[in-house]
């Protein structure tokens, strides 16, 4: 009896060792490529560090600088404002457009597969190629976007050469002046970036489509028996049943929007211009680390960004109790 227990313990040990050995590539990768840089970047955020010389501890100086830039709306402050503008608008629009497109694409019509492919196609185009294409599309003189806008009476916009934003006090003033017969220079480079992001909404649409196909038909039948029309069915059945997926896309979209870099780099030729309007946090991180050699300050910025993202995600999780409806097994 005791012999067999010892054997069992030994075989458990062997299994545990084998398990650990199989996990070791991941553990090593996690420790050296994630956990260590994560911890190191926090230490660097308390240092003056130029990548080449050893870090010099300066306490909270980098964080003080971030606070002062936040107040003056220069450097980090400007980048954070730009990122907030871009993230809030692009994520909200992505959710709304994604859900609406997925609802339309779930309708059983002739050519459904073609429409679905057309919507998904842009999201498989490499970001750099798509960005170059959008530089052409947004050309104020010969670009297709301005041509399309002219059909609905909107004059040519300067898109990538304009630091203004449509949804800003200046944008509203501009719009009201246009209604009174003035010129209209509404959209700027951030709006161009949002437009470009919307083009790649196909990724989200695929997830919504999968979720829509998973909604039980009985729910729609019950709603029909209750006399619900299409809009009511969408509002009372589709949306609540999609809410877990919307919640997932909201969080993923938020994180992805804050990380947006390649398209901004191409559109602004690596500068974050015009007028600092494309200086998103990712761009500011890149420039301060690799053009200005301020790795300590950059690490502090990255940590503030991490905390802000964590706070936003926590807030979304807290509010999710009120609007996300999970299907229960009963």
């Amino acid at each position: 009896m005791s012999q067999s227990t010892t054997n069992l313990k030994q075989s458990e040990k062997v299994d545990r060792f084998a398990g650990l050995m199989f996990c070791s590539p991941w553990i090593v990768g996690f420790v050296f490529l994630f956990a260590w840089p994560f911890a190191a970047s926090f230490y660097w955020s308390l240092c003056r560090f130029d990548l080449i010389n050893p870090p010099e501890f300066i306490g909270l100086e980098n964080y003080r600088r971030l606070t002062s830039e936040l107040q003056s709306q220069k450097g980090f402050g400007l980048a954070l404002t730009n990122t907030l503008y871009y993230s809030l608008i692009s994520v909200s629009l992505s959710v709304v457009t994604g859900v609406l497109l997925a609802t339309l694409l779930s309708a059983k019509v002739k050519g459904q597969a073609i429409y679905r492919t057309l919507v998904f196609l842009p999201s498989v185009i490499p970001i750099v190629a798509a960005s170059v294409l959008w530089i052409w599309l947004l050309d104020p003189e010969s670009g297709m976007i301005n041509y399309l806008l002219s059909w609905i009476g909107i004059p040519s916009q300067n898109w990538l050469n304009q630091s203004r934003s449509a949804l800003s006090p200046a944008g509203f003033t501009e719009f009201s002046q246009w209604l009174q017969g003035g010129a209209l220079n509404l959209f700027g480079s951030k709006d161009a970036l949002i437009l470009m992001t919307m083009w790649g909404v196909g990724n989200f649409v695929v997830i919504y489509l999968a979720a829509i196909s998973d909604i039980p038909g009985q729910l729609y039948e019950a709603a029909e028996i209750d006399g619900a029309n299409v809009i009511r069915k969408f509002y009372h059945v589709t949306l609540p049943m999609l809410s877990p997926v919307i919640f997932f896309n909201l969080i993923m979209g938020l994180i992805r929007s804050v990380q947006t870099f390649a398209s901004v780099y191409v559109l602004s030729e690596g500068t974050g211009e015009p007028g600092g309007s494309l200086m998103l946090i990712s761009m500011q991180l890149f420039l301060s680390a690799f053009a200005d050699f301020e790795m300590g300050y950059t690490s502090a910025m990255a940590w503030v960004l991490f905390v802000l993202l964590l706070a936003a995600t926590t807030l979304l999780f807290r509010t999710s109790k009120h609007w996300v409806h999970y299907r229960t097994s009963s």
Partner: peptide, 10 residues
Amino acid sequence: LAAFRQGDQS
């Protein structure tokens, strides 16, 4: 001017 300059790129 901004629009004209942008046109140089295309």
